[in-house]
Amino acid sequence: MTDALIVVSLLLVAASATAAVAVRDPARQALVLAVLGLTLAVLFTVLQAPDVALLQLAVGSALTPLLILLSVRKVRRRGHGRHDQHDKGAER
């Protein structure tokens, strides 16, 4: 039974890791990365490493995707501000 759980967990990790690489939009990548962190936490739980699973759940599923989303948001805001300033300069 545990071997089947390990195989299923590994397949879920492989699928979510592949999805994280295949997605092109950074905001969606962050969300897929959160799913990957969750599946890794499940794998670590199945492998009887609950301390590692809790750390992965906190850092890999919550903190890292949140920081990526905030960074993407800030970069997109700066990009829009530069286009607005460039357009104003062209009007003069």
Rank of each mutant, 00 (worst) to 15 (best):
A4D: 15
L5S: 12
L10I: 05
V13I: 12
A14Q: 07
A17R: 03
A19V: 03
A20I: 01
V23T: 08
R24E: 13
P26S: 04
P26G: 02
A27R: 10
A27I: 03
A27P: 00
Q29E: 07
Q29D: 02
L31Y: 14
L31F: 13
V32C: 01
L33Q: 09
V35S: 10
L36W: 12
L36A: 04
G37Q: 10
G37T: 02
L38D: 14
L40G: 01
L40Q: 12
L40K: 02
L40W: 14
L40E: 12
A41I: 00
A41C: 06
L43Y: 03
F44P: 00
F44R: 00
F44W: 12
F44Q: 12
T45E: 10
T45Y: 09
T45M: 13
L47G: 02
L47K: 04
P50L: 05
P50F: 13
D51R: 08
D51Q: 09
V52G: 03
A53N: 04
Q56A: 02
A58T: 11
V59I: 14
V59C: 01
G60N: 05
G60S: 04
A62D: 05
A62M: 15
A62R: 03
L63G: 05
T64I: 15
P65S: 10
L66T: 15
L66Y: 14
L67K: 02
L69K: 04
L69I: 09
L69H: 04
L69R: 01
S71D: 05
S71Y: 13
V72P: 02
V72M: 02
V72D: 04
R73M: 11
K74Q: 10
V75C: 01
R76M: 07
R76D: 15
R78K: 11
G79M: 13
G81S: 06
H83M: 05
H83L: 11
D84A: 07
D84M: 03
Q85W: 06
H86F: 12
D87A: 14
D87P: 00
K88F: 08
G89N: 11
A90I: 15
R92G: 08
R92H: 09
